[in-house]
Amino acid sequence: MRIGEVARRAGVSVRALRYYEEQGLLPAERGPGGQRHYPSSAVDRVGLIRQLFAAGLASRSVREVLPSVYSGSVPPGLVEHLENERVRISERIAELSEARERLDAVIANTRNPPSECRRPRE
């Protein structure tokens, strides 16, 4: 399958596929003219790569995880690494939740300022 078809089926840009290849996440064979050719399984692999990125993993971590997904074997230290990533993501979620609560308070006060903040009418 050519790069444009994989991009269309996976819902990503051609540029994203090139990036995945550069990062060692998506192998491609090259034809005589240098064109990339992917197996039909590339579409599913791109979906998994996107899920892992959406989970907050860096490309280095995704590169470590992918072989385990396809082989079923987990190298030493991978589970601990993923657990650490989960903690990092949970901390970020807590930070974002706090920021949202602060923003909600600002919005509420802007819509209906407390009486001590209102200007007296002249």
Results as ranks from 00 to 15, higher is better:
P75Q: 13
A28K: 05
E116R: 06
A28Q: 10
V106I: 15
R119S: 11
R86H: 10
V46R: 00
L103R: 09
L103Y: 10
L52G: 00
Y70K: 02
N109I: 00
R30V: 08
S13N: 10
S97A: 15
L78D: 01
Y38P: 00
S40C: 00
Q35L: 09
Y20P: 01
G56L: 10
S90V: 13
V12M: 12
R111Y: 02
I89K: 12
R15Y: 08
V6H: 01
A105H: 14
V106G: 02
P67W: 08
E91R: 15
V106S: 05
A54Y: 07
V87Q: 14
V6L: 05
Y70R: 11
G47K: 05
E80P: 03
S68W: 03
E29R: 11
A105K: 11
A42K: 00
I49W: 01
E64C: 04
A10R: 01
I3W: 06
F53G: 03
R9Q: 14
R118H: 09
A16F: 02
G77T: 07
S68F: 04
A54L: 11
S90I: 10
V6F: 03
E85Y: 05
S68D: 09
E98I: 05
G24K: 05
P32C: 06
I89Q: 12
R2M: 10
E98R: 07
